[in-house]
Simulated assay, not measured.
Amino acid sequence: MSLRIGYGFDSHAFKPGVPLVIGGLKIDHPEGLAGHSDGDVLLHAITDALLGAVSAGDIGSFFPPSDQRWKNADSSIFLATALEEIAVAGYKIVNIDTVLVLAKPKIVPISGELRERVAELLGVKPGEVGIKAKTPEGLNQDHVAVAHCTVLLESVAAPEGLARMAATAETEDELNAVVKGLVDEPRSVSALGRKLPTFDTNDLT
């Protein structure tokens, strides 16, 4: 078993006239967060932490703000792509720990609901998600939301039969033949670090 650690950071200024979304949760607040997508500062930090842990680039590599397809996009799309990258790399989440730094709104009253939502999006248990909140005292950041995330990944062992069969393959062609016999089509490991998402972005609404 091998372990990987990833770290992610993001920040967005508050902006009137847009909904506030943090951790995939819509929060009742007079202002939302400015951003090309929905401005979800927490999911952006988690996404970068996951991608960084498997050396797959960052959120901007996959979803550049210059691309109008991501205008007002739901940040859970970004997170899903990061989850796919770690799966392709052969890892799974052990736990994540996050820190939100913002003056308002208060996170403590909704921290349980926030933890449940993030865990749901990640496909892990709520006890494997840490959500903490701090105020930006002395930082002159009262109109900004900042998120930090650390993630721990562990490698996923291949099924014993597959591992034994793969061990007998001496070339990449032979390995692909082994995989083809199991799942009809070989899956290329070159997907790790790709810069384009696997789904059709034109289908997004």
Rank of each mutant, 00 (worst) to 15 (best):
M1C: 09
V108I: 09
E31C: 07
P16R: 09
G52T: 03
D142L: 11
L162Y: 11
A133S: 15
R187C: 09
A13L: 11
L83V: 10
L152I: 14
G52Q: 01
S55Y: 03
V124N: 05
P30R: 13
A73C: 13
A80G: 08
L43M: 00
G130V: 15
Y7T: 11
G32C: 08
H36S: 09
A89T: 06
T198P: 05
T150P: 02
T201D: 05
S61F: 10
L79R: 04
S155V: 15
K104V: 05
D10A: 15
K195P: 03
G8H: 04
A119Q: 07
V179G: 02
G130P: 07
E137W: 08
T81C: 07
A87L: 11
F62C: 00
D97V: 12
P159E: 11
E154V: 09
H29V: 10
T47A: 02
D173T: 11
S76Q: 10
R187F: 10
I22S: 04
L196G: 00
A73D: 07
E113C: 03
A49T: 05
I107N: 01
V94I: 13
G112W: 00
P136L: 04
K26E: 12
K15C: 10
G123L: 05
A147K: 02
A147G: 06
V151G: 05
P197F: 13
F63R: 09
L42Y: 06
D48E: 06
I131V: 15
G23D: 09
A82S: 02
V156L: 09
M165R: 14
E116A: 14
T201Y: 01
D74A: 13
V156S: 01
V129G: 06
R164I: 12
I27T: 11
F14W: 10
E116Q: 14
I46F: 00
I59R: 04
F63A: 15
V146D: 03
A82M: 04
L153Y: 01
P186K: 14
